[in-house]
Design a binder for these strands. Structure first.
Lengths: 209, 209
DNA sequence: GTACGTACCGAACGTTCGTTATGTACTTTT
DNA sequence: AAAAGTACATAACGAACGTTCGGTACGTAC
């Protein structure tokens, strides 16, 4: 009775087109017609694979989370995990632009806001063991890991936003320097030096900036 | 020849209505009709005081910046300045929601992105003397003040975003605790204690959380 | 009192949006 | 061969959008 084409594969095609539109124009530019035009088909096809625009948005956010996850190496220490989240590569810039752009709709629609809340909690949960590990090696001070995790997530995402709007000031080298300097500053005085981040006291003279 | 009404005052009325719409529905919900409905007038009136929707958006962002500035006491130390930017009051929550919501359009339209970039630079410039002051009192480590400013701005705005999506987890008390703990962790080992932030090592048992 | 400019309404303009309905080409099952 | 179901294109729907425009009410200036 049924099919001819690979439904799952075609759905991924649509998903990819959605992502291209998002990367180019953000959520305010995400329309069914833009997605259809991107892949050279009709809006009817798009709605054949996604029942509504809302489903398209939810799916796009899932893709964004998956891409973010894929950005971080399977086995990583804290510095690596945080550095991967910074907009230090074209791919990372694209993903972060989509994230930041999504916050508008996420704040406007409670359901999407709840999804974003859950995503943040997942991110912090993934960071948590890395923070605890850094605490045991003396790279981070003792104290409530939850506080440290929230603070490091905040630091990272705050840098992301500033970098997206001011890529000249916050280039790749400077972002990584800021991260290292921050981790270094957090290291307790009695911590053994240099396990997860180089000790940075004074920035080198010719550093990016 | 000319006028009867107070043009400037009426313009502020429109501006206030714009703000109410933004606070309620974000930038994705900002339409001329919504603004007009908010103040019970026609869209014609709105366009009488603002030539286009774009002008309305630009003006709204200026208002947001001014409100942010007004939030911070005239004379303040670093902790006070950063604490004021956190969503710890209904007013601050409202402002921050508008800010985060604006990033979607700001990323999509280069002109608005440039304005946002300039605003971030102004914010960091306002933070800078406070950071330098904290360095001289030994509350912050020596090193490039630009790095510390960017890091503290990042930390603060990163907390803002997490708090907006998860106000239960990031209530007023916890936000202030996180800020204090962060400033405390940054204090160099030879720094005299307690000038700009209480020394927080272990969170009190019954703290907000 | 006449002329003129501002303030504003009400309605409509053309566009674009998400969504739906209709029809056709093609495959697979019976 | 007939039946059925998937995979689309095409076209249209109604709603909402930013913007424009004609008209009216009301001042002030002459």
């Amino acid at each position: 009775m049924p099919a001819k084409t690979d439904h799952e594969a075609r759905r991924r095609d649509v998903s990819a087109a959605v992502w291209k539109v998002l990367a180019a124009d953000g959520f305010s530019g995400l329309t069914l017609r833009a997605v259809a035009a991107e892949m050279g088909v009709s809006t009817g096809l798009v709605m054949h694979y996604f029942p509504s625009k809302h489903a398209l948005i939810v799916h796009a956010l899932e893709v964004a989370e998956e891409r973010t996850r894929a950005l971080i190496p399977e086995v990583a220490d804290l510095r690596t995990a945080l550095a991967a989240a910074l907009p230090v590569s074209p791919e990372a810039i694209e993903i972060n632009r989509v994230w930041v752009s999504s916050w508008d709709v996420a704040l406007a629609e409670p359901e999407l806001g709840a999804l974003e809340q859950a995503r943040y909690r997942r991110w912090r949960a993934r960071l948590r063991p890395l923070v605890i590990e850094a605490q045991t090696t003396g790279d981070l001070p003792t104290g409530d890991p939850s506080d440290l995790v929230a603070g490091l997530a905040a630091f990272t995402h705050g840098l992301v936003v500033q970098a997206l709007f001011d890529p000249r000031t916050f280039g790749r080298k400077r972002l990584l320097h800021l991260l290292d300097a921050h981790l270094s500053a957090l290291r307790p005085p009695d911590g053994r030096p240099g396990t997860i981040a180089p000790r940075v006291q004074k920035p080198r003279a010719g550093a990016s900036r």
